Amino acid sequence: MKQGIIVFLNGTSSSGKTSISRELLNQNEFSFHHLSIDDFFHELFHDYIDFINTKCSKSADGEDVEVSVQIIIDSLVNLFYSTVKFMSEKGINVVVDTVNDNDERFNTCLGLLIDHPVLFVGVTCSKEELIRREELREDRESGLAISQYDIVYCLNEYDIELNTETLRPNECANLILNFIRSNGEYSAFKKLKNRSVGVL
């Protein structure tokens, strides 16, 4: 079976990834499934996270003990990328909407998806525009995108780079579709793996 294409959108919060994803889902030429890390956590694992927050708020003897929630989050992020791999293996085209802000997680992602057709797309805009967009949104904390900026954009290998300050979401989607139609090689992920480049 032919593996499904993975359109991997790399950008900070508010950079325009979800808007591009919607455009890709709304076109009729290629069928895509949108897999968002936000949906993965808040919809699929809402009850689980609620369980952790309520049932595990104190230790067995009732004391407040500081334990990093990264133990849980890292495992769920690994499951997220494993789900992307599973869907591609099933021949399903996937648009991946997440934020690469951790070296270990991103290298795990590279390891899982290196042998799959990953179209690595840089989704960018200026810091000023990110601040403006955040101020218009009510579902993001102020300063989140800027705090992610240097980490997310330390990667310099992309199959396509899209500036959402100058390109509308439908224009970005069309450039992605044009690349897919061209049957060009999806090489950025392989270059990142070969150079052992991760997120700092």
Rank of each mutant, 00 (worst) to 15 (best):
Lys2Ile: 10
Gln3Cys: 13
Ile5Tyr: 02
Ile6Leu: 08
Val7Ala: 08
Asn10Lys: 05
Gly11Ala: 07
Ser13Trp: 14
Ser13Lys: 15
Ser14His: 12
Ser15Leu: 01
Gly16Asn: 12
Ser19Trp: 15
Ser19Asp: 15
Ser21Asn: 01
Ser21Tyr: 03
Arg22Gly: 13
Arg22Asn: 13
Gln27Ile: 09
Glu29Asn: 11
Glu29Tyr: 06
Phe30Arg: 00
Phe30Val: 01
Ser31Leu: 02
Phe32Pro: 06
Asp39Trp: 15
Phe40Lys: 10
Phe40His: 14
Phe41Lys: 00
Leu44His: 14
Phe45Met: 04
His46Tyr: 15
Asp47Cys: 13
Asp47Val: 13
Tyr48Gly: 12
Ile49Trp: 02
Ile49Phe: 01
Phe51Pro: 07
Phe51Thr: 15
Asn53Arg: 04
Thr54Phe: 05
Lys55Trp: 13
Lys55Pro: 05
Cys56Thr: 08
Lys58Ile: 14
Gly62Tyr: 03
Glu63Leu: 09
Glu63Arg: 01
Asp64Lys: 15
Asp64Asn: 15
Asp64Cys: 10
Ser68Asp: 03
Ser68Gly: 07
Gln70Thr: 12
Ser75Cys: 05
Ser75Gly: 10
Ser75Val: 05
Asn78Phe: 04
Ser82Arg: 15
Thr83Asn: 12
Val84Phe: 15
Lys85Gly: 11
Lys85Arg: 12
Ser88Trp: 12
Asn93Lys: 03
Val94Lys: 06
Val95Asp: 06
Asn100Pro: 06
Asn102Glu: 00
Asp103Asn: 05
Arg105Phe: 06
Arg105Pro: 03
Arg105Met: 09
Thr108Cys: 09
Cys109Val: 02
Gly111Ala: 08
Leu112His: 04
Leu112Ala: 03
Ile114Cys: 02
Ile114Met: 03
Asp115Asn: 13
Pro117Tyr: 04
Val118Cys: 09
Phe120Val: 09
Gly122Ser: 07
Val123Glu: 08
Thr124Ile: 10
Thr124Cys: 10
Ser126Gly: 00
Ser126Asn: 01
Lys127Leu: 12
Lys127Glu: 11
Ile131Tyr: 04
Arg132Leu: 06
Arg132His: 09
Arg133Trp: 02
Glu134Leu: 01
Glu135Ser: 07
Glu138Gln: 09
Asp139Arg: 13
Glu141Arg: 11
Ser142Gln: 06
Gly143Ala: 01
Leu144Val: 11
Ile146Trp: 11
Gln148Lys: 10
Gln148Arg: 09
Tyr149Ala: 04
Tyr149Asp: 09
Tyr149Phe: 11
Val152Lys: 06
Val152Asp: 07
Cys154Ala: 11
Glu157Leu: 12
Tyr158Phe: 14
Tyr158Gly: 08
Asp159Asn: 09
Asp159Ala: 05
Ile160Ala: 14
Glu161Val: 11
Thr164Ile: 13
Glu165Thr: 10
Glu165Arg: 09
Thr166Arg: 07
Glu171Thr: 14
Glu171Leu: 15
Ala173Val: 13
Asn174Ile: 14
Arg181Asp: 03
Arg181Lys: 10
Ser182Phe: 08
Gly184Asp: 08
Ala188Ile: 05
Ala188Gly: 07
Lys190Glu: 11
Lys193Tyr: 02
Ser196Gln: 03
Val197Lys: 00
Val197Cys: 08
Val197Thr: 06
Gly198Pro: 06
Val199Phe: 00
